[in-house]
Design a protein around this nucleic acid. Structure first.
Lengths: 184, 184
DNA sequence: GTCTATACACAGATAGAC
DNA sequence: GTCTATCTGTGTATAGAC
């Protein structure tokens, strides 16, 4: 009976968890390895470098948001309100699960003025989020209002995630998500 | 003629600048020393450790916000609107100056789930901000609304700082500050 | 594919001359 | 008070056995 082989998906899932809580720079390869249940040496068998792990982790996370959350905005059988409520529920779970908030916001604040290593991935996340919300709000707001309204909602949610982590109280995020529903 | 002696205030001011842009963990003692124009060895003559520099930098920053910005909320000769406009103008400058956004938000996201080294200072900053805004908004909102409204405004501003740094466009912060004025 | 052992680089902190 | 030199710990990454 061979040792259970760990899948790349599982490694990335657990790496995201660690990166979200500890940040990129503070996370050690040994932290990632430990979380997955491997040694550092073995971990390097799967990835070229720490940057490589982070990039693939971000891409896997984007993939998840795209197929599990943002896609709701384009489900034709749902009303706008139903879409937004469903998205809010998923977002709440995603940003409170395992603590650590939003890995993309964390990373942009951590690396914005130092290097642009992950900027492409981070921009893509926020762009997809924007597109999804614009789809939901397009019937309520005119084209020239739409972008601003959606950016405001994303900012409100991200800000509430900061306050949520500061006070260790999920209610702040819940309220921000409810405010976005009220704007419909 | 002796060499020009650098003041502790000046060292802290320049350290804040570096910490804001690079974050705590990624900032090296040599970065701080270089910014101030000293060598690493000399820098250690002024501070015990990196943690010591950061704590004193945060305290100096809080001091600045308290005396230069939050204090405006308690100036008796100004109307609420005048207070808020004056505060917004100062806040815009403070959060866009030198880039780097809000050092307290950056630090809470960077360290929240890893250590609580600076949590006391960060909580104090947000508490003072909250108190100041509550003073300005107290005539407009009832007591049970007041805390939530003010927390929402702070969240909105902090969120806009993230989006601002993401898109390298100060307008997002400007808009968030204007929204707070519209809530008066 | 997993492990242990190790090379290498670099950051935090200290020592001691001037 | 400032410098150069150095110690020490530790984190990234690699080598090589099983």
């Amino acid at each position: 009976m061979p040792l259970q082989k760990i899948t790349p998906e599982e490694i990335l899932y657990k790496s995201i968890k660690v990166f979200r809580r500890r940040g990129y720079y503070r996370t050690k390869m040994s932290d990632l390895a430990k979380e997955v249940g491997l040694t550092k040496g073995t971990f390097y068998h799967h990835f070229e470098s720490k940057e490589d792990v982070m990039r693939k982790a971000l891409m896997a996370s984007i993939q998840w948001f795209e197929t599990s959350l943002f896609s709701i905005a384009f489900e034709p059988q749902l009303s706008s309100k139903e879409k937004l409520e469903k998205m809010s529920e998923k977002a709440f779970k995603a940003f409170t699960d395992n603590e650590g908030g939003c890995i993309f916001a964390n990373t942009i604040l951590e690396t914005a003025h130092v290097e642009d290593t992950f900027i492409k991935e981070i921009l893509r996340f926020f762009e997809l989020w924007k597109q999804a919300l614009m789809e939901v709000f397009k019937e309520k707001y005119s084209n020239d209002q739409l972008t601003d309204v959606v950016q405001q909602i994303i900012g409100d949610i991200e800000g509430s995630i900061i306050i949520m982590q500061l006070h260790k109280d999920n209610l702040y995020l819940k309220r921000a998500l409810n405010r976005s529903i009220e704007m419909l």
